[in-house]
Design a protein around this nucleic acid. Structure first.
Length: 501
RNA sequence: GGGCCGGUAGCUCAGCUGGUAGAGCAUCGCACUUUUAAUGCGGUGGUCGCGGGUUCGAUUCCCGCCCGGCUCACCA
């Protein structure tokens, strides 16, 4: 018989024994005086003498992490919110049925305990238990205690086990929440309004990507999961919501990698009467504060390299290509502007696309320190305003850190005629086979035709920023439930049915 | 989608040029009323990812498939 079947049988019997002792195997509310982290914060400084002289009575709850049984006594560690506290059980100190309950406990059970604090011989702060309450029964076996759970697939599929076994995982997601909270607080205090725009859209736009398609039955309507909220947020700017932001999921039907998950979280914000220069300044201020709120410092280390959010670099895409050019003789500024020179060094047809290719190949991986790169080619930027001095580039920048793009911003194109022409260019590309080209969004053109104030807009990838600020190598480490293929038959239901039909 | 690597007990892992599977933890039993990787003694537990082939014999060799990781391509 497999161990798991045997375990389920044992645990099922144990539930009956727990009930016979007068306890519910799955309890209800439990009134506690402290969480374990709060108790540790409050009393870790107390000496054995102080605790003995003035007994402090507490009630706590938690999951049993370890049990060390020694005849008629035992020590258990309870775990709660990533921290652990030891409790001491002694036969003489408990009612008989509660001591019998202790004898039935398994690591992984959730219990409540009441008693007074003391320090053991070895000095560990411990609760001398006078009352034991049963709260929830574990049926399966927890991962082993000192290697924890290491199998990456299991960690992603059964994130709850990962959270129980690996305290660092909890910290990553706490940091992620702090990052989001920091953005909200900063944007709110600058007068931005948080909004929610459609995730299901009849037309998709705002980015170059292939969408997911779904279907509404009653309307008999195909809808796209949004690839970006951009066009809706700018409609709101037209409507007079001059500072808006949204933090929500985008969905792109493309490859999966350590830097790409099909659904990912994006912050987008728009500020009327600003341009990309203003957004650069705002970006630096926001990211610096986020780094501090998430890690305590504007200087973070990522995969052995350092990134200083106090000191952003700024350079144009052309400058970046020159600076990181691999050969001994670097190209000149005239070279990187010259369509012929660009076509010699890239397979891309248009000069702009060629420049971007060279940038992504040579410069991007080297942009470890936070860097603002501006001067993007117009061909790949259908929603940005062109630069007044150089119509081949747009007033757009991207923010890089840790060698990846974490943000993208531009002066918004608000001329409906120009926007119409850009969409038409995109349609031509789509006709030529570019699956990621924009579609024509006539309602968006109509909105612009009512007049949109000049505005700057920006998107920041929350997942990638979280990777950087938690030193995580894979985006899956900062997404609680990353997309995986289905795992197939689990088989637990049949086993549970067999144990208790 | 391509290339490389991996999947052995609940967990973490070993298993040689093919000979019928092992450790630690967990689990079960016994002893132990201040332990902390508690300790000591004894036990249970495996469709070796799945399917086919070669072979007297396959966890091991070959082929196909499934799942995962890294990487390239695409992308944020």
């Amino acid at each position: 018989m497999a161990l798991e079947d045997e375990l389920l049988r044992q645990r099922h019997q144990r539930i009956a024994q727990i009930q016979q002792l007068g306890f519910a195997p799955y309890g209800h509310a439990f009134d506690f005086t402290h969480t374990i982290p709060r108790l540790l914060a409050g009393y870790s400084a107390k000496t054995a003498e102080e605790l003995a002289g003035d007994p402090i009575r507490v009630r706590i709850a938690g999951r049993i992490q370890t049990i060390r049984r020694m005849g008629k006594a035992g020590f258990l560690h309870l775990q709660q919110e990533g921290e652990k506290l030891q409790i001491y059980i002694k036969k003489d100190a408990l009612p008989e049925n509660e001591y019998k309950l202790y004898e039935l406990l398994d690591t992984g059970d959730i219990v409540g305990a009441a008693g007074y604090l003391f320090r053991t011989k070895t000095g560990e702060l411990t609760i001398h238990v006078e009352q034991l309450v049963f709260l929830s029964k574990i049926m399966l076996a927890l991962p082993e205690k000192w290697h924890g759970l290491e199998d990456i697939e299991t960690r992603y599929r059964q994130r709850y086990l990962d959270l129980i076994a690996n305290p660092d995982v909890r910290r990553i997601f706490v940091t992620r929440a702090n990052i989001v909270r920091s953005f909200r607080r900063q944007l709110d205090s600058r007068g931005f309004l948080e909004v929610e725009t459609p995730m299901m859209q009849p037309l998709y736009g705002g980015a170059a990507a292939r969408p997911f398609v779904t279907h509404h039955n009653t309307l008999d309507l195909d809808l796209y999961l949004r690839i970006a909220p951009e066009l809706y947020l700018k409609r709101l700017v037209v409507g007079g919501l001059e500072r808006v932001y949204e933090i929500n999921r985008n969905f792109r039907n493309e490859g999966i990698s350590t830097q790409h998950n099909p659904e990912f979280t994006m912050l987008e914000f728009y500020q009327a009467y600003a341009d990309f220069r203003v957004m650069m300044q705002l970006t630096e201020e926001l990211l610096r504060q986020v780094a501090i709120d998430a890690t305590g410092s504007p200087r973070v280390s990522y995969q052995g390299l350092s990134a200083d959010f106090d000191h952003f670099n700024r350079l144009s895409m052309r400058e970046a290509v020159i600076e990181f050019w691999p050969g001994a003789t670097k190209p000149s500024l005239d070279n990187v502007k010259d369509p012929e020179w660009l076509s010699l060094h890239s397979k891309e047809k248009s000069p702009g696309a060629a420049l971007v290719e060279l940038f992504e190949e040579y410069a991007e991986p080297n942009l470890t320190n936070p860097t603002i790169v501006h001067g993007f080619p117009v061909e790949i930027s259908p929603l940005s305003k062109t630069n007044p001095e150089d119509p081949s580039i747009v007033d757009r920048f991207e923010v890089f850190a840790g060698g990846v793009e974490i943000g993208n911003a531009f002066t918004e194109l608000n001329d409906p005629q120009e926007q119409r022409r850009r969409f038409e260019m995109q349609l031509a590309r789509k006709a030529a086979g570019d699956q990621e080209a924009h579609v024509m969004d006539e309602d968006y053109i109509r909105a612009l035709s009512y007049g949109m104030p000049p505005a700057g807009g920006e998107g920041i990838g929350i997942d990638r920023l979280t990777m950087l600020l938690t030193n995580s190598k894979s985006i899956r480490d900062v997404i609680l439930f990353p997309l995986l293929r289905p795992e197939g038959e689990i088989g637990l239901v049949a086993k549970l049915r067999e144990v208790a039909p």
